[in-house]
Nucleic acid binder design. Structure first.
Lengths: 357, 357
DNA sequence: CTGAAAGCGCTTACAG
DNA sequence: CTGAAAGCGCTTACAG
C-alpha cells in the first residue's frame, strides 16, 4: 500500500508494494545482475507508481565507491575575457554531450585563500574533474589540492609540460612563423614588429616565430622597427605613430595581437594613409573585431573553442566507465599532449609590396 | 586514543578523544548554543588533532533542513556570446563575494529534453538558486521545474514581467531615445535607421526609442531610409550600401547595434567617404570593437556585467540567512524589479551637421 | 537468484 | 549545559 503521509517513499515502501525484499529493490535501482526479469519488472512498476527517488545521502553514506557527481570545473586565473569565454563554450559543448555539468571559478592566483577556495570547490561539489587555463595551469597550490583529492584535470596551454599530465595547446611560434612567411612572400623586407606584454609566453613565442622566419629568409631585423606594446588597443597607439610617421616607414607591420593591429589601422587612417597599399598589417588571435575592421585584418585564428572541447574530450574519455577501467585512476604515461591546428586567415589588410615605391 | 586504522575519524572518535558525548561534538561542529567554553575547546582540539571532517552524507540523511549547497546556476538559451559572458562575469563577482559557486548551463529551449536536463541540474547539484537570461526567462518548462523544486531565481530582462518574480533590466527604449536626441541636437534631420532581427525585443525597443525622439522633435521619418538588418556585421553591409550610395544620402545613420554600425563605417571607407563629416554613425551595445574602429563609435553602453551582478545581489541577499528569516521562502510581493542605468558613450563617429552642405 | 540482519555517521527528540 | 538512545535510508557482507 502507498504510504499515506507526505514523506518521500523509501526502498522499504517500494519493497512492500512490489512484494519483494529491500535488497532486491536495491539491486534493481543499481542495475545489478542476478535479478530475475519478473522481479525487476515488479520493482520498476512500484518505483514508477510511488515516484520513488534514491536518497543520495543515504546511498553516499554506505557506498564504498562514492557516486560520481557529474560536475567538472573550469578554473582560470585571469579576469574572464574572450579567451576564457571561448574555452568555456567548447568545454560546455562536451559537457552537454557527455552529460556533465560545468562549474566555473575564477581563482586569484595571488590570493592567499586560493587553497581554501579550491578545497571548498572540491569538497562541496565533489568534482569529477577539472580543466585549467594559464596561469593556473602551473599553480602548485591548485594542482596540489586537485592531486591530493584525486581529481583528474587537463591543462590548456600550460607554461611547462609534464610527462604525466595531459595538456592541450596550439603551436603559437609556428603560427607566427607562417604569418611572417606570408608577409615575406608578398615581397616585404622592412617589417615592423609590436611586441606584447613582457613575461607572457605569447609575447615570446610570437616574437620567436617572427624572428625565425625573418632569419630563414635571410632578412635582417631592424631594431628600430621593434616597438614594445602591451596587448591592449591603446598601448599600441604610440607604437603605431612611431612606426608610421617615419620617413623610412616599414612596408608591413606585425602586431602581436589583433587589438594592437587595430590600433595600427586606426592610426594609419588618422595619418591619411591608404591600407593595405601604404602598409600591410597583420595581427594575431582573430578576435571578432578583426573581421569588422577596414580593411579586414589578416591574422592567425587560434581554435580556442576547440581547445576547450579537446580538453573536455580528454577529461570525459578518462572519466567515462566505458572507455577506462574502474581502476584507471591515473592518466597513461606519457599523458596525452594534444596540439591543435591553427589557421592563418588571409584578409584585406595585407597586399604585395608595391613595386613603384 | 586515535583510531589505528585508515578510516576517517567520526564524531565517535572525536567524542572519545575529547572525553565527551557525541552529542556534544555534534553541538560544537554545528555551532549550536548551550555548550560551555571548556567543552567547546576540548572538542575543537580533538577535531584538529584527528583531522576530523563532517561526513556530509550522514548529516544530509538526518538533517531536516537540508544543508545549503552554495551552488547557483546561470541558465541561458542562446549560444554563449559576449552578452552571456558579461552577465557571467558580473554574476561570478557576486558569487565570489557571497561564497557561492556558479554552474553554467546552456539549455536549448526548443529541445524536448530541456525538462530532464533542468531537473537533473536541480537534483544533482541541489541548486540554491538560479539566474536566467532571455529567452529562458519566459520558458514555462524551466520556470516550472525551478518553482516545483523551490529554487529561487532572478530573471534578467524577461520579455514579460511578473509581479511575484524579481527581475533586472535596462531601459533600452529610453537609451535609443537619448541616442537619437544626440543626433538631433547635432542638427541631423535626415537620419537613416538599420533595424535588427525581427521578433527580438531589442529590435522593437530600439526602434520605438528612435521613432519617439524623431516624432517629439517634429521630424518625419523617411521610410526609404529604413533598412532591415539582422544584427550581424555582414547583414548590414547591403543596408549600408543602400543608404550611403543614395544621391540624397542621410546625414546620420542609427544602426540597431554596434556590429551593424561597424558595417556602415567599413562601407563608408570603401566608398571613399570621410567620417563623421560625410555621415554620423551611431550603434548600440558598446562591444569591445567599437572603441577600436576608426572613427571610434558613438553608442549606448548597456551595463551587462552589472546586470549580472545586480541579479546576483538580489539572489544572494534573499539566500543569506542574515538578511532573510529562515521562513522567507518567497520573494516579497511585489518582487524587486531593478532597472539599471545605461550610458550614452559619445565618441568620434558623430559630428554636427555640416552647414556647407 | 533472493532475503534478513547489521550498521554506515550523523541528528533528532527526549531526559536530566 | 550535557548525554544516552533511536533511527534516518540505504549498502554491505553473509546465508540460503
Amino acid at each position: 500500500m502507498p504510504p499515506s503521509d507526505i514523506r518521500k517513499p523509501t526502498i522499504i515502501d517500494v519493497a512492500s508494494r512490489a512484494g519483494v525484499s529491500i535488497k532486491t529493490v536495491s539491486r534493481v535501482i543499481n542495475n545489478e545482475r542476478h535479478v530475475s526479469n519478473e522481479m525487476r519488472a515488479k520493482v520498476r512498476a512500484a518505483v514508477a507508481e510511488l515516484g520513488f527517488e534514491v536518497n543520495e545521502s543515504a546511498r553516499g553514506m554506505r557506498s564504498q565507491t562514492p557516486d560520481k557527481s557529474y560536475v567538472v570545473a573550469q578554473l582560470y586565473g585571469d579576469p574572464g575575457g574572450a579567451y576564457t569565454s571561448d574555452i568555456q563554450i567548447g568545454l560546455l559543448s562536451r559537457c552537454h554531450y557527455f552529460g556533465y555539468h560545468l562549474v566555473v571559478e575564477e581563482l586569484d592566483y595571488q590570493s592567499p585563500d586560493i587553497e581554501r577556495r579550491t578545497k571548498d570547490l572540491v569538497r562541496r561539489l565533489k568534482l569529477d574533474g577539472a580543466v585549467l587555463t594559464a596561469p593556473l595551469t602551473d599553480n602548485e597550490i591548485v594542482l596540489g589540492v586537485l592531486d591530493e583529492a584525486g581529481v583528474p584535470y587537463v591543462r590548456i596551454a600550460p607554461v611547462t609540460e609534464a610527462r604525466h599530465l595531459p595538456s592541450v595547446r596550439i603551436d603559437e611560434k609556428r603560427a607566427a612563423y607562417q604569418l611572417t612567411q606570408h608577409l615575406i612572400a608578398f615581397g616585404h623586407k622592412r617589417i615592423g614588429f609590436i611586441r606584447g606584454l613582457p613575461g607572457h609566453s605569447a609575447t615570446l613565442l610570437r616574437w620567436e616565430g617572427f624572428a625565425q622566419a625573418m632569419s630563414e629568409a635571410g632578412l635582417s631585423i631592424d631594431d628600430s622597427l621593434i616597438e614594445e606594446g602591451g596587448f591592449r588597443y591603446f598601448s599600441a597607439i604610440p607604437c603605431a605613430h612611431n612606426l608610421l610617421e617615419r620617413a623610412d616607414r616599414p612596408t608591413a607591420i606585425f602586431a602581436s595581437n589583433d587589438e594592437m593591429a587595430a590600433a595600427v589601422i586606426s592610426v594609419a587612417h588618422e595619418l591619411g594613409l591608404t591600407l593595405p597599399d601604404d602598409c600591410s598589417v597583420v595581427g594575431f588571435d582573430d578576435i571578432p573585431t578583426s573581421e569588422m575592421l577596414w580593411p579586414s585584418l589578416t591574422t592567425v585564428r587560434q581554435p580556442v573553442t576547440r581547445l576547450g572541447a579537446a580538453a573536455g574530450d580528454l577529461l570525459f574519455t578518462r572519466l567515462s566507465p566505458l572507455t577506462s577501467g574502474p581502476d584507471s585512476v591515473e592518466w597513461p604515461t606519457p599523458a596525452p599532449h594534444v596540439v591543435l591546428q591553427h589557421d592563418v586567415v588571409l584578409r584585406a589588410s595585407t597586399a604585395p609590396l608595391r613595386k613603384t615605391k
